[in-house]
Design a binder for these strands. Structure first.
Lengths: 132, 132
DNA sequence: GCGTGATTACTCGGATACAAGATGTCCGAGTTTGAGCGG
DNA sequence: CCGCTCAAACTCGGACATCTTGTATCCGAGTAATCACGC
């Protein structure tokens, strides 16, 4: 069980978009260079964030990606859910509605982690990044 | 990111071994039937638990597996670590010793989940299982 | 009855096969900006 | 100076290739209990 690299890329990119947010969108090439990823691959990841409503894309020249809506409200969990999906980490006998005893423990521990991720907003961390 | 099925099998098997612990070891065939898994595959999983020191195996006829040591001390985390490995869920720039800001948040959230798993012992749950 | 050997039941470990998901690339299509050009 | 056209820059989305990991099976080897047999 591991977080995918895509989640890592998504988090760093979102952090950058929030920290250096402007009216102009930021091109995927610039974002990709920061993490040494191929632009096309990063674009694939960011598409998921667009569909989740976290960012919006601008086509054409000078296009790119931009934070959508109130960037103060975006939590770590929002991004992780957008990339990893919002399914339960543990699959067991039956569904989530009638979990067995073991399943209940696993769900509760997962809930503890998610609470932490939900309460941590990206903007709090972005403010700690030294401005260039 | 998901827990592997092997973790599920390991948890259920351990729960059974603890709930119905006797001096005699329990054969892998019996354990496998309870979860509808192939015995050889379950044996592979249990080997990891043996190496982690949680259970011990008895070869030969009437062989099988048995809880090793104090079964009151075994936590969910012990089993999950034995199967999934004890590496960090999130890999990022650099190592765990000098994590970046994002990495710090992820490590803290993981720690929250592990604390919950560490504090929940299998014997507590096993006592709630209705005896046959 | 008793020791000895063979059989049986069982785990162990490696090798292997298969499937699924993560990772990454390539290319065509659509879209916007901006430059160039003619009136 | 204005408007039109065209090229460039850029994202979007699907198709594809590759690699890793999880899942599962098979088989030979080793081990312990039990049974059979001969003394």
């Amino acid at each position: 069980m591991k977080y995918s690299k895509a989640t890592n890329y998504a988090l760093h990119t979102m952090m950058y978009l929030i920290a250096y947010a402007t009216d102009k969108p930021i091109g995927v090439q610039q974002l990709a260079e920061l993490q040494s990823v191929s632009p096309t691959y990063l674009s694939k990841i960011l598409t998921k964030l667009v569909k989740a409503g976290l960012i919006e894309s601008a086509s054409g020249a000078n296009g790119g990606y931009r934070v959508r809506g109130a960037r103060e409200d975006i939590s770590f969990l929002d991004i992780i859910r957008a990339i990893e999906g919002n399914v339960s980490l543990f699959e067991c006998c039956g569904d989530d509605n009638s979990p067995c005893l073991i399943h209940q423990v696993m769900l509760a521990s997962e809930e503890a982690m998610e609470q932490h991720l939900k309460n941590t907003r990206l903007v709090d961390i972005a403010n700690q990044i030294p401005r260039v």
